[in-house]
């Protein structure tokens, strides 16, 4: 299997666990996890397969998501 061209980074400090990222992702590259952040919010996790549409990045109400093309800086 070819390695993903993109990766999805979630800032756990900012996330409030609304999972709109999971809802909007057209390729199910994100899912709900059982991990919680310091403030007790349950976190989403990246499971692979991102194609770089950046819809999760744009919808995130907490500005907590960054989609990166691998090998590029921020």
């Amino acid at each position: 299997m070819a390695e993903d061209e993109y990766t999805v980074e979630i800032d756990e400090r900012l996330c409030k666990g609304c999972f709109l990222c999971v809802w909007t992702c057209p390729v199910d590259a994100l899912r709900e996890s059982d991990r919680r952040n310091e403030r007790g919010y349950r976190l989403p996790e990246y499971v692979g397969g991102c194609r770089g549409c950046r819809q999760c990045e744009l919808i995130c109400p907490d500005l907590a998501i960054e989609v990166r093309r691998k090998g590029e800086g921020s």
Partner: peptide
């Protein structure tokens, strides 16, 4: 990212608040 006052984040909005998306879209 240069347009956000990071020292004030996370913001006061509830989880899943539409205002957060508006803030996100606006700064971009």
């Amino acid at each position: 990212r240069d347009l956000i006052r990071w020292e004030r984040m996370p913001h006061i909005l509830c989880p899943g608040c539409g205002n957060g998306t508006i803030l996100n879209v606006l700064v971009r």
